[in-house]
Amino acid sequence: MISKLNLENILFLDIETVPETENFSDLDNTKQDLWEAKSRYQRKKDFTPDEFYDRAGIWAEFGKIICISVGYFNIEGDIRTFRVTSFYGDEIKILKDFKNLLLFHFSQTKHLLCAHNGKEFDFPYIARRMIIHNIELPYKLNLFGKKPWEVPHLDTLELWKFGDYKTYTSLKLLTNVLGIPSPKDDIDGSEVYNVYYKDNNIDRIITYCEKDTIAVAQIFLRLRGDDLLNDDEIKHI
């Protein structure tokens, strides 16, 4: 049961991604053809490959990570804090810094990673981008040969499903029904492309990513029956 897990052993996280280049025309001809084939089902006949390209960030083969925000609990007696920090900038540096965090602070068997829809998106996306950049996978992301119960990942979407595999509940909806302050009070995922490439405002994206990370932790607390974090307990470092 999740109520028996030690909160200090869990690393909560969220990632933000964008297409690997600003414009479809920036891709070479081969990559353009591959994008046209990859996106054909999703865009159907409603969009051209060029018109649909701003959504390429959801695929690790055509996107890149621009921010990884992480949060973790520190509990000393009756004092509970949730510390949040972010890795951003060059993707290779983001991935290496995140890997070092896992290696030096969250490498033990007891340590777990937690994200919303993390098993379908965040965890595999990070792993794929590491492989693309020839970065050796840390143990927490290397699932080869692991049995299901050996995978060190928690997913608040999966926990909310309670075994129901035919539904998807967004982070925004789940925070709303659970009475948690919405992390989507400024931008949402569909706007990250423009904020990054058009506005060049990485700080706004970092704030958004950190809010999502905090929301994941809040959902986890609600699922455990614990008190939600208050503003004084959240420390940005």
Score class of each variant (00 low, 15 high):
Val195Pro: 05
Leu102Ser: 14
Glu150Lys: 12
Asn176His: 10
Leu5Gly: 09
Leu141Pro: 11
Tyr88Pro: 09
Ile205Leu: 03
Lys38Asn: 03
Tyr125Pro: 14
Met130Ile: 13
Leu113Gly: 10
Val151Pro: 08
Glu91Asn: 10
Ala217Arg: 08
Arg80Tyr: 00
Thr169Arg: 01
Lys99Trp: 04
Tyr72Thr: 13
Ile219Leu: 11
Arg129Ile: 04
Leu171Ser: 08
Glu36Ile: 01
Asp90Arg: 13
Asp186Cys: 05
Asn200Arg: 12
Asn134Arg: 09
Asn29Tyr: 04
Gly57Pro: 14
Met1Cys: 06
Lys198Met: 06
Ser170Asp: 02
Arg40Trp: 00
Glu191Pro: 03
Gly225Ala: 12
Lys146Met: 12
Ile132His: 09
Asn23Asp: 06
Val177Gln: 09
Ile75His: 06
His111Asp: 15
Lys99Cys: 15
Leu5Pro: 04
Arg222Gln: 09
Glu61Gln: 12
Arg224Gly: 10
Thr109Trp: 02
Phe12Ala: 10
Asn6His: 03
Ala215Leu: 12
Leu154Pro: 06
Gly57Cys: 08
Pro183Ile: 00
Asn100His: 13
Asp212His: 09
Glu91Phe: 06
Glu136Asn: 08
Asp54Leu: 02
Ile68Ala: 07
Glu8Phe: 01
Leu95Thr: 11
Cys209Trp: 00
Asp155Ile: 07
Lys45Val: 07
Ala217Cys: 10
Asp185Arg: 01
Ser25Met: 05
Leu141Ile: 07
Ile214Glu: 00
Leu173Val: 06
Leu27Ile: 14
Gly57Glu: 02
Phe104Cys: 14
Thr48Leu: 10
Val216Phe: 03
Asn117Trp: 05
Gly71His: 03
Ser182Lys: 04
Asp78Cys: 12
Phe98Val: 15
Gly179Asp: 07
Asp33Leu: 12
Asn201Ile: 07
Leu229Gln: 04
Tyr139Trp: 04
Tyr53Thr: 15
Ser86Val: 06
Ile58Thr: 08
Asp14Gly: 02
Thr85Gly: 13
His111Arg: 07
Leu223Glu: 08
Ile126Gln: 10
Asp226Val: 01
Phe82Trp: 06
Phe52Cys: 12
Leu221Val: 11
Leu13Arg: 05
Lys45Ala: 10
Asn9Trp: 00
Leu137Val: 05
Trp35Thr: 15
Trp59Tyr: 15
Arg43Asn: 12
Ser190Gly: 13
Thr85Glu: 15
Gly225Arg: 08
Leu157Ala: 06
Gly118Phe: 02
Val177His: 00
Ile58Val: 13
Thr48Lys: 04
Ile58Ser: 08
Ile68Thr: 01
Thr48Met: 05
Gly179Lys: 01
Tyr53Pro: 14
Asn117Ala: 14
Glu36Cys: 13
Tyr41Trp: 11
Asp33His: 04
Asp33Thr: 11
Glu22Gln: 14
Leu102Lys: 11
Asp203Ser: 14
Val84Gly: 14
Met130Phe: 02
Ile131Gly: 13
Ser190Phe: 03
Leu13Pro: 02
Gly145Thr: 02
Thr81Tyr: 02
Thr175Asn: 02
Asp203Gln: 09
Asp232His: 07
Gly225Val: 05
Leu13Trp: 01
Ile214Val: 15
Tyr208Arg: 04
Leu173Ala: 11
Pro152Ser: 04
Lys161His: 03
Arg224Leu: 13
Ser69Tyr: 02
Tyr193Lys: 10
Asp199Phe: 01
Asp186Gln: 07
Thr85Phe: 11
Tyr72Ala: 09
Asp54Phe: 02
Asp46Lys: 13
Asp78Phe: 02
Arg204Gly: 13
Gln32Trp: 01
Ile219His: 08
Phe106Ile: 13
